[in-house]
Computed example of a mutant assay.
Amino acid sequence: MKVAFFTVVMLVLLPHYAIAQGVGGTRVNQLPTPPDTGTSDDPRTPGGTRTPAKACKQTEKPLTALVPENGKGLTTAEHPVFWFYIPYASDDIHSIEFSLHNREDMATLYRTSLQLSKTPGVMGIPLPPSPENSLKLNESYHWRLMVNCDHKESSENILELDGWVTRVQPTINSVIWYDELTNRAKHYLSEPQNPEVKTAWAELLKSVGLEGIAQEPLVSSVSNPKKE
């Protein structure tokens, strides 16, 4: 246990560029550019014309994707976990859907309707461990999270986030964003009262400008009752 924790602490000390640049000669800024969706300057939160002022419950902090500032992240996993801060309880919204698509948005690898818990917080959406849902090495994928705040399926009632994930080879020289985020989330869930584990979690989020989310509760992974 001490050895594992030492690894986590040491990773906190790695420079910010190690997370931002990626690995194996692949820089994050060389990955596909997300399409212009009319969102705010920060692609991790809803914004622009897609902000529903009336349908969604007003919250202190917005729906947020836990990804680097440009909305792009790397993973070595075939089946990574996607993390979001969801400021709503199950009774606050009508439905929420996560989907993952190939780079050209011509094929859908995974689509699921999610069941939220009664407690708002940071939640993980795991990609199912099946061959048809596997990420291929050195390929980029486009994910979307859509929250419908009302039973009427109108664009005025929907909050939408989207971003990119690319699977790369493992390396010892850089922190791989999705892998490290999931690793620290698991530590936090297993030792929620450990101040050092809390600090490691907060430092990782701070490294990409998400320090405002660091104190929000970690509610584990959401359940996936319906796969489409």
Rank of each mutant, 00 (worst) to 15 (best):
V3E: 03
V8Y: 09
V9T: 13
V9G: 04
M10P: 08
L11G: 11
V12A: 11
V12Y: 07
L13D: 08
L14G: 00
L14R: 10
P15S: 04
I19H: 03
I19G: 04
G25H: 05
G25T: 06
T26W: 12
R27A: 11
V28D: 10
Q30V: 13
P32R: 02
D36P: 10
T39E: 07
S40D: 14
P43M: 03
G47M: 09
G48L: 06
T49L: 13
A53D: 07
A55I: 00
C56N: 01
T59S: 10
P62E: 01
L63Q: 07
A65Y: 02
L66K: 01
L66D: 01
V67P: 02
V67C: 06
P68S: 00
E69G: 11
G71C: 05
G71S: 10
G73I: 09
L74V: 05
H79Q: 08
H79C: 01
P80L: 05
P80D: 05
F82K: 02
F84N: 00
Y88N: 04
A89H: 08
I93Q: 02
S95T: 14
F98G: 02
N102H: 10
R103A: 11
E104R: 15
D105N: 14
M106D: 15
M106E: 15
M106R: 15
A107D: 14
A107E: 15
Y110M: 13
Y110S: 04
T112D: 06
S113W: 11
S117M: 12
V122K: 13
V122N: 03
P126D: 01
N133P: 08
N133G: 10
S134M: 13
L135N: 08
L137T: 14
H142T: 12
W143V: 08
V147M: 09
C149N: 02
D150E: 10
D150R: 11
H151D: 10
H151N: 12
E153Y: 13
S154A: 09
L161R: 00
D162K: 09
W164I: 10
T166Q: 10
P170D: 07
T171V: 09
I172H: 11
S174Y: 12
V175H: 03
V175N: 06
I176K: 01
W177D: 01
E180P: 09
L181N: 04
L181V: 04
T182E: 11
T182N: 15
L189T: 12
S190G: 08
E191F: 15
P192D: 03
Q193G: 09
P195G: 04
E196C: 09
E196Y: 14
E196M: 13
V197L: 03
K198F: 04
T199I: 09
L204S: 04
L204F: 06
L205A: 00
S207P: 06
V208A: 04
V208Q: 02
G209E: 05
G209I: 07
P217D: 01
P217F: 00
L218F: 07
L218H: 07
S220D: 15
V222R: 02
S223I: 08
K227V: 15
